[in-house]
Design a protein around this nucleic acid. Structure first.
Length: 163
DNA sequence: CAACAGATTCTCT
DNA sequence: GAGAATCTGTTGT
């Protein structure tokens, strides 16, 4: 079990995203293994950072390896990891994880994941603690992202069925 | 300032 | 497939 170093996140979101599959987030003593991610970069029309920095997306322009949590639809929080170099405005959205312990299974959607682990706006800018347990994600599929209307066809979503 | 769309999810049709 | 819950950012009058 090795904690991912800052250098891990200081790469392009499209490179970090697939590399995050199989990595582990420790929460309340349980291992949450990442199974679905999406990459968002500055030149992406669907990215929050596309039109520059605002109060909400400011964490995306901060140093990599920190959390970027935003509130959408007046109801849900979404959990992202800032990537690239400071000022790049990149992030990887963590859409779902595989839970062990309580009830093993795949979480459904980024909103439910954030609620499960209690992620909210106070997480913004805090260092990310993810671990490499040596697991290799298998059966990785690349496909279109979810819930957007711009650049829908950009292959920037990665999913693995392995646990 | 009003209108609308949005990196969501649940419920009913 | 449509609607609700209801916050944030963008665009237009």
């Amino acid at each position: 079990m090795q904690r991912l170093p800052p250098e891990f996140f200081a790469r392009d979101a499209t490179v970090v995203a697939p590399d995050l599959l199989g990595k582990v987030l420790l929460w309340e003593g349980y291992e949450l293994r990442i199974t679905e991610v999406e990459a968002y970069t500055r030149e992406d029309p669907a990215s929050h950072s596309y039109r520059g920095m605002t109060a909400r997306n400011a964490p995306m322009f901060g140093p990599p390896g920190r959390w970027y949590v935003y509130f959408v639809y007046g109801m849900h929080h979404c959990l992202n990891v800032v990537t690239g170099a400071e000022g790049d405005g990149q992030a990887v959205l963590i859409r779902s994880v595989w839970t062990f312990g309580i009830a093993s299974g795949r979480t459904r959607g980024p909103g439910r994941l954030a609620k499960l682990i209690g992620a909210d706006l106070t997480w913004n800018g805090r260092p990310v603690e993810l671990h490499d347990i040596g697991a290799v994600a298998r059966d990785v599929e690349i496909g279109p992202r979810v819930g957007i209307t711009q650049a829908v066809d950009w292959p920037r979503r990665w999913v693995t069925r392995s646990t």
